[in-house]
């Protein structure tokens, strides 16, 4: 397992992927932005403020998805102690925190014209803030504990407890009376969002996922170099 992940071929692939994403990223970003800001229609009720959704929703998805990935990696990691999974989880966490914060801030900017307030302590928004706090704790444990095995154990437990918060975020809008509206896009069943708005949303999601992949690969590469450097000192 160790050898597979540390295979130098993987390292070369990381380099190739970074270069590939870099080469196509800006074209895709321009396409997605022009759809989100110019070509897509305004909403019948919200007018143009619906465009905020094109950054808010993908950011929230990424925030939730990356925490789920971190939590499952942490479960495996806590039981089997695989060093590479720690590196992967550690490389994902800052991206997740970044996008959770973006989701909160853009949501707040959207709330002002739509709801009439920047902030409301309803279940969805509060659970999203708690998610950001879990990310922060996860990242800080790696900074605080210098001994790596201890940092891994503590951060894994934090991620596993934080996993309970994920369904709470997702279903808060259905379980309790919240100011935040229920999800428009459902995994099963019909979505209550028109295709002319769904398309730019998915396009934007794709572009932001590419951005995440880019950052992840760079962070992961940094971690590998850090480990290699440590091994050098042992000679």
């Amino acid at each position: 397992m160790f050898n597979f992940f540390y295979n130098s071929n993987i390292f070369i692939w990381i380099e190739k992927l970074i270069n590939f994403i870099n080469s196509i990223f800006f074209v895709l970003l321009l396409v997605a932005l022009s759809f989100a800001l110019i070509f897509s229609p305004p909403d019948y009720l919200q007018g143009d403020s619906v465009r905020i959704m094109y950054v808010h929703v993908p950011a929230a998805w990424i925030g939730l998805a990356s925490f789920t990935v971190i939590a499952f990696l942490s479960i495996i990691n806590f039981i089997f102690k695989i060093k590479n999974l720690t590196l992967i989880a550690k490389s994902i966490a800052p991206i997740g925190l970044l996008f959770t914060c973006i989701a909160i801030v853009t949501g707040s900017i959207w709330g002002q014209p739509t709801w009439g307030t920047f902030w409301a302590w309803d279940a969805r928004i509060t659970s999203m803030v708690i998610l950001a706090i879990f990310y922060l704790l996860f990242i800080l444990t790696h900074k605080y504990f210098l001994e790596e095995s201890k940092a891994n154990n503590v951060s894994s437990l934090i991620a596993i407890v934080g996993l309970i918060n994920i369904p709470i975020v997702k279903y808060s809008v259905e379980w309790w009376a919240t100011l935040h509206q229920p999800a428009s896009i459902k995994i099963s069943g019909t979505s209550s969002i028109h295709s002319s708005m769904l398309m730019p949303l998915l396009l934007m999601f794709f572009v932001l996922i590419l951005y995440c992949a880019l950052i992840f690969l760079m962070k992961y590469k940094t971690e590998i170099i850090r480990i290699k450097k440590k091994n050098l000192k042992r000679i």
């Binding site: 229609p41 909403d43 009720l45 959704m53 509206q181 969002i193 028109h194």
Partner: peptide, 17 residues
Amino acid sequence: DRILAKHDENYMPPELK
């Protein structure tokens, strides 16, 4: 002393509406 609008989950262009 304060009114907030609660938005629903439907998004569509005005023509369709």
